[in-house]
Amino acid sequence: MNNLDLLKKLCTANGISGDEDSVREIIINEIRDYVNEYKIDNLGNIIAFKKGRNKAVKRLMVSAHMDEVGFIVTDITSDGLIKFDTVGGIDRRVILGRSVLIGGKINGVAGVKPTHLCDADEGSKIPEINSMYIDIGADTKEDAEKFVSLGDSITFEAMYEDNGYSIKSKAIDDRAGCFMLIQMIKSELEYDAYFTFVVQEEVGLHGAKVASYSVDPDFSIVLESTTAADIPEVSDSKQVCNVENGAVIGYIDKRTLYDKGMINRAVSLAEKNNIKLQFKRSVAGGNDAGVIHESREGVRTIAISLPCRYLHSQLSLIYKSDLDETYNLACMLASDVAGGKL
């Protein structure tokens, strides 16, 4: 796909759930000249409408979420250390020793008692979140309070690398979805469509819930990054999906039974156009489809996902070929759906 500089810009922007402002700003700057109208709703979602060459037969909403997982400052200790809680699901094993950014500007690192001073049990144990802390270099509470406030957002330090085959970055979930949505908006559409860049997916799908109410679509396509666990020592059935095997769709996850008509259409489009498509091999995860398909009287919904390794940590990994396959399938399905072919 072209314009991967934009993907980098999106992924390295900081926006945990409830603090998506800087991501929203990037997106609005990208799309404002390509949409017929857009608005920002009460929760901070971007709801955009773009006319196609033809009037839509069915109202379609294509959605991706802007937020990423991270942390929030809960306390500052007397010795100047920052206590935090997670925002979104983060495994405790990927936190200690990490570099973070507090409030978008202050460097910090998640402290670890040196292994030399631990007994055997302590040295191999991952502490509870409430025993972890971030060190910004302060020695006292007063010192730290000059730089950090309670409630400040904390993100993993941004890193991004494209080695020609794959991309390693922070926040691919779901800036890759936002990226594909922007590319769709910049392309010429066959039919009118609504595009929603939603907030707070990682903390209860709140953005998508109200956006789908406002748009009131007949159909919805959610563009997500989904967990690929195709790594050593994970049995095939538990790998869910594989990188380099193309776009991912599932019949079911932890929140949604997906629309069979849309699935069948996606499969036939993929076959006809030689697009790589794979099915999720286990029931795992959930995404904005969980609330969109239950909106109002119900919305026919599918999620088209990008296989992504190491979700919800500082560095995730996707293959560039999968980005193309996922984008191409999403564009074709969007056109068929809005054109009333289902």
Binding site: R92, I126, A229, I231, V234, R309, Y310, H312
Partner: peptide, 17 residues
């Protein structure tokens, strides 16, 4: 990147390095 499992597929061994 050092390979790891996402929390969605946790093996329940979050307490252990």
């Amino acid at each position: 990147i050092v390979c790891c499992m996402p929390p969605h597929l946790s093996d329940g061994n979050e307490d252990k390095a």
